[in-house]
Every structure is written in C-alpha cells, then in structure tokens.
Amino acid sequence: MDPNQKADEQEVLEQLDPLASVPTFQGALGRLIGVIDTLFTVLAVTALVAIAGTVLLQISARLFLPFSVSWTEELSRYLFIYMVAMSSGVVLRQHRNVSVELFQHTLGLRFRAALHSLICLLIAGFALIVLPYAWQYAMNGAWQTSPTLKIPMLYIFFSTVVMFALLLFYGAIGFLEGFVAIFRSPERPDSEFP
C-alpha cells in the first residue's frame, strides 16, 4: 500500500474514531499481534463464507431436490456463533464496536490513551470475571448432542470460552498499548517502541 494512502486512511480513521489515534505496538510484538489478528480474521471470514454456502445449499435443496436438507439451518446457526466469537477480539482491537462518542475528539492524545486504557481494562476485567462461568457453561454441553448434526454441544458452548478469552487477551493488549502511549514522549518515533 502506498505510504501516502496509508497516512490518508489513518487520518480519516482518526476523524471517525478518535481512539484510533492511540499508537499500537510496533516491532516484533506488533507483528505477532498482527499475525494473531489475521488468523482470527481469516477464521471469522471462513465461517461467514461457510454460512453463505450452507444457506445456498439449503435454498438449492428446497428448490431442486424432492427433500429438504435438515441440518443446514443448525450448521449455519453454529457457524454464526463461532464467527461472532472469533471476531470479537479483532473488533475490539480495531475499534469497530458500537460506541457513543461525545467528547473523545476534544481530548489530547494522552487523555485518549488513558480513556482507551480504561475501556480496555473494563472489558478485560469483565471477561476475566465471566470466563470461569463460560467454562462451566461449556462443560454443561458435554453430555448433550445437537438435534440434527449429533455433535456434542460442548463444541458449540465452547464458543463462549473462545469469545471471552479473546476479549481478555485483546483487552489486556489495548490496556498496555494505551498505558504505554500515556507515558510515551510525543517526539519519539514509534519505531523505538516494542
């Protein structure tokens, strides 16, 4: 991507979302987080494409076959659940959650970083509190099977564990990025940081 285009994109993003101006980690740590982001984005997009394929199969079967395929609706529902769970962390990291922005654009970079840290800390704290209960919920599905696919519901209920674990992970990263940005000297280039 052209550096000018990337700078223009970043400027527009900062105008739309003031918290996007909080610098992220660079270097090896930033690349590792980027790889993890890409992995979960690819998994979520794969689930979305699979949902589309499943629904098209269901529609085609109803139109062209003398019988309906009963498992497609159930599979599309489970794929949707996992798509949401796997994309939750990346959505948090990219500031794509639904939010109300009343005053963030009036804050300086350090106050934006502090607000970003606080938001991520609250999300990570909530995920930390809920994660053990999500695990208990997932274990309830160990002795149940899905109605048409006959797969253990443990795998479906485990999506809650995945979602809250990702929110905890990405919330912690966002908190650390904001915390570092609060104390970062504005004249130092980003390449000097991890």
Rank of each mutant, 00 (worst) to 15 (best):
I36M: 07
A127G: 07
F80H: 12
L115Y: 04
V69N: 04
L63R: 05
A52G: 11
V69D: 03
V22C: 02
V98M: 13
Q94D: 14
T106N: 00
A52N: 03
A52P: 03
D37R: 12
L16G: 02
E14T: 01
A114M: 10
F67S: 11
V90S: 11
I36A: 08
A47E: 03
G89L: 11
G27N: 02
A127E: 03
F25W: 13
V49R: 04
V12H: 07
L121G: 06
I129K: 12
R62S: 06
F67Y: 11
S76L: 12
L75K: 05
L128A: 15
R93F: 06
R62N: 09
E9L: 08
L48I: 15
R62I: 03
L48A: 15
V35S: 09
M86P: 05
D37K: 12
D37Q: 12
L75M: 15
S70P: 02
L16I: 00
S70I: 12
L56C: 13
V130G: 07
A50T: 10
V90I: 14
I33C: 06
V84T: 15
E74V: 09
L92A: 08
G53M: 10
G27L: 08
I36W: 08
V45K: 04
V91W: 09
L109T: 00
I81S: 11
L118W: 15
I119A: 11
R96S: 11
D17G: 00
V98F: 06
E74H: 11
L131Y: 12
A52V: 15
L16F: 01
V42A: 15
A113F: 02
A50I: 04
L48T: 12
F80N: 09
P66A: 06
V45D: 04
E74D: 07
F25Y: 15
V100C: 00
E101I: 09
A127H: 03
R112N: 01
L63I: 01
M83D: 09
A61Q: 04
I33A: 05
G34F: 07
R93I: 02
